[in-house]
Amino acid sequence: MNSLTPLKLILVLFACGLCGALGGYYAASFSPIPAQIAVVDVSALVMKAVEKNATQTEDDAKALTARVKATTDKLVQRGIVVLDAQSVLNAPEEAYVSIE
Protein backbone atom coordinates (compact mmCIF):
# COMPACT_ATOMS: atom_id res chain seq x y z
CA MET A 1 0.00 0.00 0.00
CA ASN A 2 1.33 3.40 -0.95
CA SER A 3 0.44 5.99 1.64
CA LEU A 4 1.32 9.64 1.74
CA THR A 5 3.23 10.71 4.77
CA PRO A 6 2.50 14.20 6.09
CA LEU A 7 5.79 15.44 4.62
CA LYS A 8 4.98 14.03 1.15
CA LEU A 9 1.49 15.51 1.34
CA ILE A 10 2.86 18.94 2.21
CA LEU A 11 5.36 18.73 -0.67
CA VAL A 12 2.65 17.69 -3.15
CA LEU A 13 0.35 20.51 -2.00
CA PHE A 14 3.22 23.02 -2.21
CA ALA A 15 4.06 21.85 -5.76
CA CYS A 16 0.39 22.13 -6.80
CA GLY A 17 0.13 25.63 -5.35
CA LEU A 18 3.35 26.70 -7.06
CA CYS A 19 2.17 25.33 -10.42
CA GLY A 20 -1.17 27.09 -10.03
CA ALA A 21 0.50 30.38 -9.16
CA LEU A 22 2.87 30.16 -12.12
CA GLY A 23 0.03 29.23 -14.47
CA GLY A 24 -2.05 32.18 -13.22
CA TYR A 25 0.88 34.56 -13.62
CA TYR A 26 1.52 33.28 -17.15
CA ALA A 27 -2.16 33.67 -18.13
CA ALA A 28 -2.39 37.15 -16.57
CA SER A 29 0.72 38.37 -18.35
CA PHE A 30 -0.94 37.79 -21.73
CA SER A 31 -4.40 39.07 -20.83
CA PRO A 32 -5.19 42.61 -21.93
CA ILE A 33 -6.09 45.02 -19.16
CA PRO A 34 -9.38 46.79 -19.87
CA ALA A 35 -9.24 50.57 -19.89
CA GLN A 36 -10.36 52.16 -16.65
CA ILE A 37 -11.05 55.42 -18.42
CA ALA A 38 -14.22 56.33 -20.28
CA VAL A 39 -14.38 59.15 -22.81
CA VAL A 40 -17.52 61.23 -23.41
CA ASP A 41 -17.60 63.51 -26.44
CA VAL A 42 -19.86 66.26 -25.12
CA SER A 43 -19.26 68.50 -28.14
CA ALA A 44 -20.40 65.77 -30.52
CA LEU A 45 -23.49 65.15 -28.40
CA VAL A 46 -24.42 68.83 -28.46
CA MET A 47 -23.79 69.11 -32.22
CA LYS A 48 -25.89 66.00 -32.82
CA ALA A 49 -28.72 67.42 -30.73
CA VAL A 50 -28.56 70.79 -32.51
CA GLU A 51 -28.58 69.12 -35.94
CA LYS A 52 -31.74 67.21 -35.02
CA ASN A 53 -33.48 70.27 -33.62
CA ALA A 54 -32.34 73.71 -34.76
CA THR A 55 -34.54 75.37 -32.14
CA GLN A 56 -32.64 73.82 -29.26
CA THR A 57 -34.10 75.06 -25.99
CA GLU A 58 -32.51 75.46 -22.61
CA ASP A 59 -34.66 72.58 -21.30
CA ASP A 60 -33.29 70.28 -24.00
CA ALA A 61 -29.74 71.22 -23.03
CA LYS A 62 -30.52 70.52 -19.38
CA ALA A 63 -32.03 67.15 -20.33
CA LEU A 64 -28.91 66.24 -22.30
CA THR A 65 -26.70 67.28 -19.40
CA ALA A 66 -28.80 65.17 -17.02
CA ARG A 67 -28.46 62.11 -19.30
CA VAL A 68 -24.68 62.60 -19.52
CA LYS A 69 -24.45 62.94 -15.75
CA ALA A 70 -26.62 59.86 -15.13
CA THR A 71 -24.54 57.74 -17.50
CA THR A 72 -21.20 58.93 -16.18
CA ASP A 73 -22.27 58.55 -12.54
CA LYS A 74 -22.75 54.81 -13.13
CA LEU A 75 -19.21 54.60 -14.54
CA VAL A 76 -17.72 56.57 -11.66
CA GLN A 77 -19.39 54.25 -9.15
CA ARG A 78 -17.54 51.36 -10.83
CA GLY A 79 -14.24 53.21 -10.35
CA ILE A 80 -13.82 54.44 -13.92
CA VAL A 81 -12.40 57.89 -14.63
CA VAL A 82 -14.51 59.86 -17.13
CA LEU A 83 -12.86 62.43 -19.41
CA ASP A 84 -14.22 64.80 -22.02
CA ALA A 85 -13.14 63.85 -25.54
CA GLN A 86 -11.65 67.32 -26.13
CA SER A 87 -8.88 66.60 -23.62
CA VAL A 88 -8.04 63.09 -24.92
CA LEU A 89 -5.28 62.78 -27.49
CA ASN A 90 -5.94 59.12 -28.30
CA ALA A 91 -8.02 56.28 -26.87
CA PRO A 92 -9.28 52.89 -28.00
CA GLU A 93 -12.74 52.89 -29.56
CA GLU A 94 -14.24 50.91 -26.67
CA ALA A 95 -13.26 53.68 -24.22
CA TYR A 96 -15.83 56.03 -25.79
CA VAL A 97 -19.24 56.02 -24.08
CA SER A 98 -22.39 56.18 -26.15
CA ILE A 99 -25.20 58.12 -24.55
CA GLU A 100 -28.67 57.41 -25.91
Rank of each mutant, 00 (worst) to 15 (best):
P32M: 11
Q36A: 13
L9N: 12
E58N: 13
K74P: 05
S29H: 07
C16L: 12
V46L: 11
Y96C: 03
L64N: 01
G17Q: 03
V97G: 02
L83R: 07
I80V: 10
V81R: 13
M1A: 12
L22M: 11
L89P: 03
Y26N: 13
A15D: 11
D41M: 01
G20Q: 06
A54K: 01
S43P: 01
E100M: 03
L18I: 14
Y25Q: 12
M1C: 09
V39D: 04
R78V: 13
K69Y: 02
A15Q: 10
L89F: 05
L64K: 00
I80T: 12
L18Y: 12
C19D: 15
L13I: 14
V88S: 02
I33W: 02
P34W: 10
P32Y: 07
I10A: 11
G23N: 04
A28Q: 13
V46S: 02
R67I: 01
G79I: 15
L18W: 15
A28H: 14
A70G: 10
P32V: 10
P6R: 09
A44V: 04
K62E: 03
N53Q: 02
V81I: 13
L45F: 00
F30D: 14
P6C: 10
K74M: 03
T5C: 07
T65H: 08
P32L: 06
A70S: 09
Q86R: 12
P6K: 11
I37C: 04
Y26M: 15
T65V: 10
L18A: 11
M47P: 01
A91L: 06
P32I: 10
V50G: 03
E58P: 05
I99E: 00
K52L: 05
T71S: 06
F30R: 06
I99D: 00
P6H: 05
V68L: 02
S31A: 10
L7Q: 14
K52G: 03
L9S: 13
G24V: 06
A44E: 03
N2M: 14
A44L: 10
V97R: 04
L13P: 11
A95R: 03
L64H: 01
E100P: 04
N53G: 00
V46Q: 05
D59P: 04
Q86C: 11
A95F: 03
Y25E: 08
Q77H: 11
L45G: 00
Y26E: 13
L22V: 15
M1D: 11
V88D: 00
L75C: 11
G24T: 09
A15C: 15
N2I: 15
Y96E: 04
E58T: 11
V50N: 06
K48H: 12
F30G: 13
D84V: 04
P34S: 15
P6F: 08
V39Y: 05
Q36F: 06
V46M: 04
A35R: 09
K48W: 00
F14L: 13
T57A: 01
T65D: 13
V81D: 08
A70C: 10
N90E: 06
L22G: 12
A95M: 05
G23H: 05
A95L: 05
L11N: 10
A66K: 03
T72N: 04
L83F: 10
S87F: 04
G79H: 15
V40E: 08
M1F: 11
V68H: 00
Y25P: 09
I33Q: 07
A35D: 14
V42W: 00
E94L: 07
A27G: 09
L83K: 09
